[in-house]
Simulated scan of single mutants.
Amino acid sequence: MNFLSYVVLGGFSYAAGWAIRTYILNKQPAPEQPYNLKHPAILGYLGAFFIIMLIISWMIGRYALGHISLDLPFIIINSIVATFVYSFGLNPEKKSYDVPD
Rank of each mutant, 00 (worst) to 15 (best):
D101F: 14
L65P: 13
V7Y: 10
I80C: 10
V85K: 04
S5L: 03
Y35A: 01
I24M: 07
I75R: 02
G61Y: 02
G17F: 05
P29S: 10
Y35H: 04
S5D: 11
I51V: 15
S69G: 06
L4F: 15
N2I: 09
Q33V: 13
I42N: 10
I42W: 00
G47P: 00
N2H: 01
F84T: 15
Y23G: 03
E93Y: 05
I55W: 08
D101W: 14
D101T: 09
L70R: 10
L90I: 03
P100Q: 06
M1H: 02
V99I: 14
L9A: 14
A48Y: 10
P40A: 02
V8T: 08
P31G: 00
P73H: 06
L54A: 02
I77H: 09
L9F: 05
A82E: 03
M59K: 10
G11A: 08
F88S: 13
A19T: 04
Y6T: 05
F88C: 06
I76D: 02
N26L: 10
K94P: 00
P31T: 04
N78Y: 03
Y63S: 09
M59V: 09
Y97M: 10
N26P: 02
I52Q: 04
K94A: 15
I60W: 07
V99E: 10
N91Q: 12
P92W: 08
S57P: 05
V8D: 08
I20E: 05
P31I: 12
F3P: 05
I52W: 07
S69V: 13
F3S: 13
A82V: 00
Q28V: 11
S57Y: 00
Y45I: 00
L70K: 09
N78P: 04
K27E: 11
R62V: 06
L90P: 11
K94E: 15
I56Y: 05
V85M: 07
S57K: 00
V8E: 09
S5C: 03
T22D: 13
L37D: 06
L54D: 11
A16F: 14
Y35G: 07
G10Q: 11
Y63D: 06
L9W: 07
P92C: 08
E93G: 06
H67Y: 08
I20A: 12
